[in-house]
Design a protein around this nucleic acid. Structure first.
Length: 425
RNA sequence: GGAGAGAUGUCCGAGUGGUCGAAGGAGCCGGACUCGAAAUCCGGUGUAGUGCUCUGCAUUACCGAGGGUUCGAAUCCCUCUCUCUCCGCCA
C-alpha cells in the first residue's frame, strides 16, 4: 500500500497514476472517508483522554463520596466512548480496504499505455528460430514423444492440468537445477518455500485472494491460499521485521509450486503448458535500500537474460506499460521467448517477469530497516522469475525440435539431463 | 491428535488490577579516561498516529492476535495463532 498521508499531500499525482494505469479507484470517496475517519479518531481520542484522566484521579486514597462520583462519570464516558468507537471502527475498516486499492506509483521511465500491446520492446536477443519444415507446437511434440499427457491431467484433475512423463521429467528437473546454479552464482540464498500462505501475506504482497476475477485458490475455512508464486512466501519471510541495514541487500531464491485459477484464460495463446493451473517456478527476490532498487532491478533482469542466453533461446525484453503493471509494481520488465509453435508462424511468449515494487509491499507487510539517521524506513522489494518451468519447457521443446519430431537438448542442459535428445520410442 | 508450559521493547528478561511505556541486562548513540583501542565510568536510547505556541510540548494507541469484565487491564476471563516439553501417529 501507499502511505495514507499521500492522499492529502500527493492527491493529483495519485489521481494521474490511477488514470495512467487505467484503474477504477474512486479517490474522491477515499479522501472523503479519510476526513470522516480522522474527525472520528480525534473525537475518540479526546474521550479516551477524559477516561484516563478520570481513572487516574482514583489512584490514591480518596473519600468514598468523591470516588462514587468519579465512578459515575467514568461509566458515562465509557458508554459514550463505546458508541464512538463502533462508529470509528466501521469507517476505518472501509477506509483501510479502500487505501489498499490505490496502486503504487509508476516509474517516470515506464511507458504509458493501456494493455500488453503497449509494452515497449527494448531489446532483442537472437533471431526467431525458423525451420525448413512446418514447426509443431509443444502439445503435439509432447504427445508424440510421450512426455506430456494433458488428457490424463484433465481426467484426473480437470482442464489445464497435465502430467509430465519420461524424459520430460528429467528435462524439467534439469532446467530447474540449471537455473538454480546460475542464480546461486550471483549470491542468492536458496529456499524451497511453502506452497500455502496466509491471506494477510497474499494481501500484503498485493494479491487479492477473493472475488470472481481472483487468480488465487483459497482453502476454505483456513484463512490460507495456494500460492501463485514464491514471491508471496519470499516476500512474507521478513514480514513485521526490522532488518539490519548491514544485512541489506538480502538476495533469496525460492522454488515453489504455483497455483493459478486462470478463470477465463482459454484460447489459442493459452494452449498446452503455456497457461496451466499448476507449475513449478524458481523465483528471485531482493530486499534492499530504496536508493539501490533500480540497480538491483537491472541485475535481476540481467540474470534472467543470462539464463535464457545460456539455453540459446531467442527472446525480446519488454518494458511493461503502466496499464499492465499490476498495482504493486513501480516498473516491470518481461522476457518473452520466441516460441515457434505459438500462433501460426511463431510468436514471442512471456517466460519471465521482474518487478520493482519499491516500498509498496514493505509498507503493507511492515518490513523496515534502521537508517543511519536512526529512523525506521521501509525497504524496497523486488521479484523476478528465474525460471517458470512450464513455459521454459515450452520454449526448449519448440525451439529445439527436429523435422522428425525429436527434440535436441540445449548444450547447457546436457550435463544436467544425461542425454542429448528426446526421440520417439 | 492428547496433556502441560509459554509469547513483554532491537535482543535477553522482570512485572499478576491504578504509583507501568513498562525494572535489570545486552546492543546502539554521545561523553569521560587513553597516543589510539579494549576495559571501566557517566548520560541518552521504543513504535505508530494526532494537535499545537513545532530542533520542542501535549495527547492517543501499542506488552502474540481478537473479543470481554472493570471507573481503570501487560496483569483477570474467553477465543484464536504460534513456540517449547511429554505422549500418540507418521513419509
Amino acid at each position: 500500500m501507499i502511505d495514507v498521508r499521500d492522499i492529502k499531500t500527493r492527491y493529483d499525482e495519485i489521481a494521474k497514476n490511477i488514470k495512467d494505469r487505467y484503474m477504477n479507484v474512486d479517490l474522491e470517496k477515499i479522501a472523503a472517508d479519510m476526513d470522516r475517519r480522522s474527525a472520528l479518531l480525534s473525537q475518540t481520542e479526546a474521550l479516551r483522554a477524559r477516561r484516563n484522566e478520570t481513572a487516574s484521579k482514583m489512584k490514591g486514597k480518596i473519600d468514598p463520596e468523591t470516588r462514587q462520583a468519579l465512578i459515575e462519570e467514568g461509566k458515562a464516558i465509557k458508554e459514550e466512548l463505546a458508541a464512538k468507537e463502533a462508529e470509528l471502527s466501521a469507517i476505518d475498516q472501509v477506509f483501510q480496504e479502500e487505501v489498499r486499492t490505490i496502486p503504487n506509483y509508476y516509474s517516470p521511465e515506464a511507458p504509458i499505455g493501456k494493455e500488453d500491446k503497449d509494452n515497449l520492446a527494448i531489446k532483442f536477443f537472437g533471431e526467431p528460430t525458423r525451420f525448413p519444415f512446418k514447426a509443431k507446437d509443444h502439445v503435439q511434440l509432447g504427445e508424440d514423444l510421450d512426455i506430456l499427457d494433458f488428457e490424463s491431467g484433465a481426467k484426473v484433475s480437470g482442464q489445464k492440468f497435465y502430467y509430465i512423463k519420461n524424459k520430460g521429467v528429467i528435462l524439467q528437473m534439469a532446467l530447474e537445477r540449471y537455473a538454480m546454479d546460475i542464480v546461486l552464482k550471483h549470491g542468492f540464498t536458496p529456499f524451497i518455500t511453502p506452497d500455502i500462505a496466509k491471506e494477510e501475506i497474499l494481501q500484503g504482497i498485493g494479491f487479492n485472494p477473493r472475488g470472481a476475477e481472483s487468480n488465487i485458490y483459497t482453502i476454505e475455512g483456513t484463512g490460507t491460499c495456494l500460492v501463485g508464486t514464491a514471491e508471496i512466501t519470499l516476500g512474507g519471510y521478513y514480514s513485521g521485521e526490522i532488518l539490519d541495514k548491514k544485512d541489506l541487500p538480502i538476495r533469496m531464491t525460492g522454488l515453489s509450486h504455483c497455483f493459478r485459477r486462470e478463470a477465463g484464460g482459454a484460447g489459442q495463446y493459452s494452449k498446452g503448458l503455456y497457461r496451466v493451473h499448476q507449475f513449478s517456478k524458481l523465483e528471485m527476490f531482493i530486499y534492499c535500500l530504496p536508493e539501490e532498487s533500480d540497480a538491483f532491478h537491472k541485475e535481476i533482469l540481467s540474470i534472467e537474460e543470462e539464463i535464457f542466453q545460456g539455453l540459446g533461446i531467442p527472446y525480446r525484453i519488454v518494458d511493461t506499460a503502466t496499464g499492465d503493471l499490476g498495482a504493486p509494481a513501480y516498473r516491470k520488465f518481461d522476457i518473452e521467448a520466441w516460441m515457434p509453435g505459438r500462433g501460426d508462424e511463431g510468436e514471442y511468449g512471456e517466460v519471465t517477469s521482474t518487478s520493482n515494487c519499491t516500498d509498496y509491499q514493505a509498507r503493507s507487510l511492515n518490513i523496515r530497516y534502521r537508517d543511519d539517521d536512526g529512523k525506521l524506513k521501509f525497504v524496497h522489494m523486488l521479484n523476478g522469475t528465474a525460471m517458470a518451468l512450464s513455459r521454459a519447457v515450452v520454449a526448449v521443446m519448440e525451439n529445439y525440435q527436429e523435422e522428425d519430431g525429436s527434440i535436441r537438448i540445449p548444450e547447457a542442459l546436457v550435463p544436467y539431463c544425461g542425454f542429448d535428445r528426446i526421440e520417439r520410442k
